[in-house]
Amino acid sequence: MINLGEKKLILASQSPRRKELLKGLGFDFEVRSKDTSEDFPINLDPSEVAGFLSAKKAAAFAHEIVPNEIVLTSDTVVILEGKILGKPANEEEAFEMLFALSGKTHLVTTGITFLTLEKELTLSDTAKVFFKELSGQEIEYYISNFKPFDKAGGYGIQEWIGFVGVEKIEGSYFTVMGLPIHLVYDVLKNL
């Protein structure tokens, strides 16, 4: 167990999954969030987008941070054949994304940024996810029952679609879930 001493950890995310994962490490933390644009330069390498967006979210707190605070931000992207799949706007987009992922391997990259008054550190972790072939009926069932509109790539691995569709992962399950908790632990341990 890590004791942060006088430091106060701020999770800058409304994601229930990130809250659950950070709580699992045993840290006390406060949740604060800001709406931040998820736009990124179109020429940015897809593997760098999650880190870029995480750092952008941290920058929104730069003028508010006080001594002894550690702000943690995070962003997750799904990369299929070199293309970023964002969050679906509606059922049709979610279906298109899941249909495209069906029977293929894709990458999930999660970037995390730690911001204090003294420094900023951004790290990324990537996992490779192998999806089995999904039927249209399975995709429609998932979308109508789980409404994955707040999730990159239109799915949450910890939900039904992950149970039936993910054959294998190379890398951290928690990176796919939205927070590479092993990296978070290592950084906080060294702070």
Rank of each mutant, 00 (worst) to 15 (best):
Y155P: 04
K104H: 12
V66G: 06
Y155W: 09
I139V: 12
I139G: 07
E92P: 00
I143H: 06
A127I: 03
L115H: 05
T36G: 00
G154V: 06
K151W: 10
H106C: 10
G162M: 02
L134C: 07
Q158Y: 06
I161T: 08
L179T: 06
D75I: 12
N68K: 14
L53A: 08
S54C: 08
D35L: 10
W160F: 15
G156R: 03
V129D: 01
I112N: 05
S47N: 11
E167P: 02
K119V: 00
T73K: 07
N145Y: 14
V108K: 03
F149H: 14
G86N: 11
K151D: 07
T116I: 11
T105S: 09
Y173L: 11
P67W: 09
L117F: 00
F95N: 10
H106W: 11
Y141E: 12
N68L: 12
E64A: 11
L80W: 04
F146S: 04
K56M: 10
F174A: 04
I42G: 05
A55F: 12
T110I: 11
K56T: 12
S144P: 09
G171E: 02
N145M: 11
G51P: 07
I161C: 04
N145S: 15
S124G: 01
I169T: 04
K128N: 00
K151I: 10
E170Q: 12
T116C: 10
E92S: 14
T126M: 11
E69S: 14
K147G: 00
E159N: 10
E120T: 15
A94G: 12
E118Y: 11
E138N: 12
A50Q: 05
Q137L: 14
K119W: 10
I143R: 00
E138Y: 07
T76A: 08
M177R: 06
G162L: 03
I169P: 04
T109N: 02
G178S: 09
G178C: 07
I169M: 09
V129L: 00
G156E: 03
K56A: 07
F146D: 02
G154T: 09
L85P: 01
L123V: 13
S54V: 08
G154H: 05
F61T: 10
F130Y: 15
Q137N: 15
Y155K: 07
P88M: 08
V164S: 04
E140K: 15
H106V: 03
S124P: 01
L134D: 03
V176Q: 00
W160A: 10
A94K: 08
F40N: 06
L85M: 13
N90F: 08
K132Q: 13
K128G: 00
K83V: 15
L85I: 01
E96M: 11
E48K: 15
V78A: 08
F40S: 03
E69H: 13
A55D: 14
K104Y: 08
K56W: 00
V66I: 14
F174W: 06
S172L: 04
P67G: 09
L72T: 02
T76G: 05
Y141T: 07
S144F: 15
L44G: 13
D125L: 02
V108F: 13
